[in-house]
């Protein structure tokens, strides 16, 4: 018997995968081509890969940009997961009127476009520089600090905590665990899928962040990958071969992070203890 339902599933997913991946295939092809072939829209792989790579690495400090981007994305992601999970858990498990009001106010912070915050935030870091230059303007920490936690992640963890089986907390209390112990030893391990989803998003946001580093970073040695790519594209004669090579290099880390963390979405049994 032909299983129409599963054929339908595969067809739909294959089409969606193709549409999603097409630009990435194009990027991979483009990194092997000369600039002039890329602007012409060539879909055939070329033989310029080695030259693009050597032009990129010889003329730009890709190594330091990669290091900076990894440094920022990893530290910001780890801090974000801990701080946001704590808060999401706190708001949901120890719900009170006062906390609900605070929560609603926190949500307000998501509602203003970042473009409007940039100037005041830059001035704020200018003031920080006077006292603590190590975390002030033109440091990697200044890139990280505003992303240590955002209302978005607090909201995300709170909503997921709503689906967390609260009986487990009582069980932990009966077993004599401290409240913090329950959070770290029961809640966190059982939220692996939520942590994976938040981790992917946080890593991706921090890795790709452009506007804020553009404003706060000044020295070339503190440049991140998106800043490097945008520098490649400025000027009167951008070399698209080199640009696409840099883009592919800049995309691989997030793709890998996703690929390795997404397995947590399958192992659903860690998500909740059933029955």
């Amino acid at each position: 018997m032909i299983n129409w339902k599963s054929i339908f599933t595969y067809v739909i997913l294959s089409v969606a995968a193709f549409v999603s991946l097409f630009p990435f295939i194009w990027m991979l092809i483009s990194m092997t081509n000369k600039s002039v072939d890329i602007t012409r829209g060539s879909l055939m792989p070329g033989s310029n890969l080695f030259e693009n790579l050597s032009n990129l690495f010889a003329n730009y400090n890709v190594g330091s940009a990669l290091f900076n981007s990894f440094f920022i994305a990893i530290i910001a992601t780890v801090l974000c997961l801990i701080v946001s999970a704590l808060a999401g858990y706190g708001f949901e498990v120890y719900q009170s009127k006062g906390k609900d009001i605070v929560f609603t106010i926190l949500l307000l912070s998501m509602m203003i476009p970042f473009a409007a915050l940039m100037i005041p935030l830059f001035r704020f870091f200018g003031n920080i520089s006077q006292v603590f230059p190590a975390i002030g303007v033109d440091t990697l920490y200044a890139v990280i600090l505003p992303y240590v936690t955002t209302a978005f992640f607090v909201f995300f963890f709170r909503q997921n905590t709503k689906m967390f089986t609260k009986d487990l907390i009582e069980a932990g209390r009966i077993d004599g665990l401290s409240e913090l112990g329950i959070f770290f030893r029961i809640y966190m391990p059982s939220m692996k899928n939520t942590l994976a989803a938040a981790g992917i998003i946080s890593f991706m946001n921090n890795w790709n962040n452009y506007l804020w580093p553009l404003v706060i970073i000044q020295s070339p040695e503190n440049q991140t990958i998106p800043l490097l790519i945008s520098n490649l594209g400025s000027g009167y004669t951008p070399d698209y071969g080199v640009i696409y090579t840099a883009i592919v290099i800049g995309t691989i880390p997030t793709a890998l992070v996703f690929f390795f963390l997404q397995r947590f979405f399958v192992e659903g049994m860690t998500g909740s203890v059933k029955g």
Partner: peptide, 12 residues
């Protein structure tokens, strides 16, 4: 509970 949310509130 306030302790759990404190760090996030300060940063935001």
């Amino acid at each position: 509970g306030w302790f759990f949310i404190l760090i996030a509130v300060i940063f935001i």
